[in-house]
């Protein structure tokens, strides 16, 4: 197990270096990509500003708290999209239709890894950093007191949330093995996961239970932000670890199950 993880990490490092050289080849494209990514988040921030021109709080969160949440969300979505969606999961339905999975399946590495993490998208880096800056700005302007001890807890929940989101992305996109030319499936997965940009307090009643267990989006952005803002509930830590393991394992089981439906289209 440990050897396999180390081997995959070594492969990933090589893939990262390869992706960097690709990006350097098309520098103008890279600048434009970064610009578009930043523009998307400028829209989110503008939406937030417009909202707070008219109201003073949303589900108990004030403007600066939501600014922290938006910043964390920006880091979260950029990492998620950049590592697994843009160049990877989004192209899975095309690979299935064209039979391009053949070459991947013959490689001596985990096929889920190869399909979902092959090429990182580097335009995410500046926008993720911009997200971190926005979170910092919200934190300092809001005058919240900083507790260093909360950082590792927040990072742990955040990391587990990323694993859960990645796993859900793999599961939803793998449905493409059953539907012909299901190119919008990765976008559907993204749309579901982007519900995590809302504070968990927005969901009430049965919805709250659903978004903490079956579709645990509350663990992705809202809880890590709450922890940074000083509201840590200890049960979040073991719960996020358990959910991350369960979802990652489920995604792998589902991937292997879905692969049985694959019949090479081109050969």
């Amino acid at each position: 197990m440990a050897t396999s993880v180390v081997r995959h990490l070594k492969v990933y490092w090589k893939l990262v270096r390869f992706a960097v050289s690709l990006e350097l080849e098309y520098r103008f494209a890279y600048i434009l990509e970064v610009f578009v990514e930043l523009a998307f988040f400028a829209v989110t921030l503008m939406g937030l500003r417009v909202l707070f021109w008219n109201v003073s709080e949303v589900a108990g969160w004030d403007y600066y708290e939501l600014m922290v949440l938006s910043g964390v969300n920006m880091v979260f979505s950029e990492l998620l999209l950049g590592t697994s969606f843009i160049f990877n999961l989004r192209s899975l339905p095309y690979k299935i239709v064209r039979g391009d999975l053949d070459i991947i399946l013959t490689k001596p590495i985990n096929s889920q890894f190869a399909v979902s993490l092959w090429r990182p998208y580097f335009a995410m880096v500046p926008s993720a950093l911009a997200g971190a800056f926005i979170a910092y700005l919200g934190f300092s302007k809001g005058g919240f007191s900083f507790h260093l001890a909360n950082v590792p807890a927040s990072l742990l929940i955040f990391g587990c949330g990323l694993i859960m989101a990645y796993s859900i992305g793999v599961i939803v996109t793998s449905l493409a093995f059953w539907f012909t030319n299901a190119t919008p499936l990765p976008m559907l997965a993204q749309q579901v996961l982007f519900m995590s940009k809302n504070p968990a307090a927005v969901f009430t009643g049965a919805w709250r239970m659903i978004f903490m267990t079956i579709l645990p989006i509350a663990f992705m952005v809202s809880f890590p932000s709450s922890v940074l803002l000083g509201d840590l509930q200890l049960w979040w830590l073991p719960a996020s670890l358990v959910l991350a393991v369960v979802f990652l394992k489920s995604s792998n089981l589902f991937w292997n199950f879905a692969l049985k439906k694959y019949s090479s289209a081109s050969s």
Partner: peptide, 30 residues
Amino acid sequence: YRGQLFVWFLNEFVGLVSTIFIWTAIFRTN
């Protein structure tokens, strides 16, 4: 590819549900 259109519909529907959640929360106190 009618299925594609259906998935796009689901996509938009999920976005709409997310928006309804946030506005419902806003109107709880406004």
